[in-house]
């Protein structure tokens, strides 16, 4: 007889669904756009050259798909940004972590010179048993707002703990 594994989702965890964590500031600059584009292997000059980007109708060098700025590094806070740790003030029995996937939605173009504010909330906890055993899937949504107060992008991320 098989026994259903006990849920690791607690009332404390359910209570934080939908609550936004601390805001993170992300700088979108020429060098960051170029470095990201180069690391992917992009060939479109709008990701590298300001004149080419402006000739194509953009305000400045365009942030390549998936690049939403670089968090302002704070040595007293360490390696991880609040976006990665949002709502992690609870404990679960799984030690290992996998990145389950990411989806981006663009509501406007992001260009070098933009200053983005990211706010992340947990949108769902789900449990599943797969080839790696029982796992907890945490879904988060991060909203990116630019310096004019406009929401320019949303990111949905899924983290797997097992």
């Amino acid at each position: 007889m098989t026994q259903q594994a006990e849920s690791v989702i607690t009332d404390e965890m359910r209570a934080i669904i939908g609550k936004e964590g601390a805001a993170t500031t992300l700088e979108v600059e020429n060098g960051g756009c170029r470095m990201f584009a180069r690391s992917v292997g992009h060939t479109d000059p709008i990701f590298y050259d300001e004149d080419a980007a402006k000739a194509a109708g953009h305000r400045g060098i365009v942030a390549p798909p998936g690049y939403l700025g670089t968090p302002v590094f704070n040595p007293s806070r360490g390696e991880r940004s609040p976006a990665e740790t949002a709502g992690s003030g609870y404990s679960i029995p799984y030690k290992r972590v996998l990145n389950g996937g990411t989806d981006y939605e663009y509501l406007d173009t992001v260009c070098a010179g933009d200053l983005l504010t990211a706010r992340t909330k947990i949108t769902d906890f789900a449990e599943r048993t797969g080839s790696i055993g029982p796992m907890l899937i945490t879904s988060r949504q991060t909203t990116f707002t630019n310096q004019d107060g406009k929401v320019v992008a949303k990111m949905q991320g899924r983290t797997i703990q097992y």
Partner: peptide, 22 residues
Amino acid sequence: NAFLGQLLHDWAGAKGNVKKFG
């Protein structure tokens, strides 16, 4: 994932626009 962003960006061309990918 970023490669897939490039795949769509390059296909959409200068007059197209990648609205979602993941």
